[in-house]
Design a protein around this nucleic acid. Structure first.
Lengths: 166, 166
DNA sequence: TTAATTTGCTAACGAACGTTAGGTTGTTTA
DNA sequence: TAAACAACCTAACGTTCGTTAGCAAATTAA
């Protein structure tokens, strides 16, 4: 709280005019970021598109949220485990729901023959790992723009590293 | 320190017969895990193998270390940023060195025509994201064994999700 | 213009934290 | 068998932490 107050240019005690507790800050960051992610992925949801296109859109939506909110993303991804109950359990439920968006896309891809994955849950976790690792290295003034990141990640996850001989 | 002491069944003050400081525990975990990773990847290094085979081996080696040391891995991956100087800088240098192993494999794959990636650094970061996310969900008594995890991750990263029409 | 509200201040506070010091007990070594 | 050493204990300690209380100043609303 003293570090935060220093960054804000006020005293730590003054922060309590605006919030109830330190825990409330964490709750707000985590649940607001969750809302951002859900909002973004709902916005690109198109059941008429094929699974490949849907995955690309979902990846792009996720990348946009991460790269628009780099600091909140870091807090969201690294500090959620410090949430106290019942928020901790609520948060995990939201995470499961969000993972299900991706899971459903994978299922559709398998059903339509577009995708071939040995384990769909594993595939989702790996997709999300690639997405949620971005915050560890992404810099707004870095070489790669968010759209390029989404494109590269989609290409890598869909096509793999191996040169396609077609 | 009190939580750790509780888990050990001794008093917190007693821990100081065995270590110098809390920071030393973090240093030991981080640098020993780094040694484990380096040792494992050196052991599978085979410059005569093609890039695909080398990547598979590197992935497998990494997964073995992670899954053999689930708690230390969690500390290593989540708490290294709390290292104080000069250990923090040392640690980043080790991380860079480790990433270079993978980067070299990717370069070889591009040079030999086996791989087609738009950005090699991005490719390495994505590979490592898939690897280092494992600790968030892996359970020793879980459905998927370490060898299967390595296999699935290799397949997914090399071949991608898309069904190969060959 | 005055009252109400908001925002920030100082000065704590109780709790938690990492760690030290001195002593006791148990183990090992000579 | 006694001395040396290791490991653990209790009892702190100074520091850091999140937060409260009371007050002043600034801002907003009536």
């Amino acid at each position: 709280m003293r570090d935060l107050a220093n960054a804000l240019g006020i005293e730590a005690a003054s922060i309590y005019s605006h919030i109830r507790s330190k825990e409330e800050i964490l709750q707000r960051v985590c649940f607001r970021m969750a809302d951002e992610f859900f909002g973004a992925i709902e916005a690109v949801k198109d059941n008429d598109a094929n699974a490949t296109e849907q995955l690309k859109r979902a990846i792009s939506a996720h990348v946009q949220v991460l790269t628009r909110n780099t600091e909140a993303s870091a807090v969201f991804l690294q500090e959620w485990r410090h949430l106290s109950e019942p928020y901790h359990t609520e948060f995990l439920a939201l995470r499961d729901r969000y993972e299900n968006y991706f899971r459903e896309i994978i299922r559709q891809g398998i059903a339509s023959g577009e995708f071939q994955v040995p384990d769909e849950k594993f595939a989702v976790l790996t997709i999300l790992s690639g997405l949620n690792w971005i915050h560890t290295w992404y810099k707004p003034d870095g070489k790669m723009k968010p759209a390029e990141i989404a494109e590269n990640l989609s290409a890598m996850l869909l096509n793999g590293l191996k040169t396609n001989l077609n």
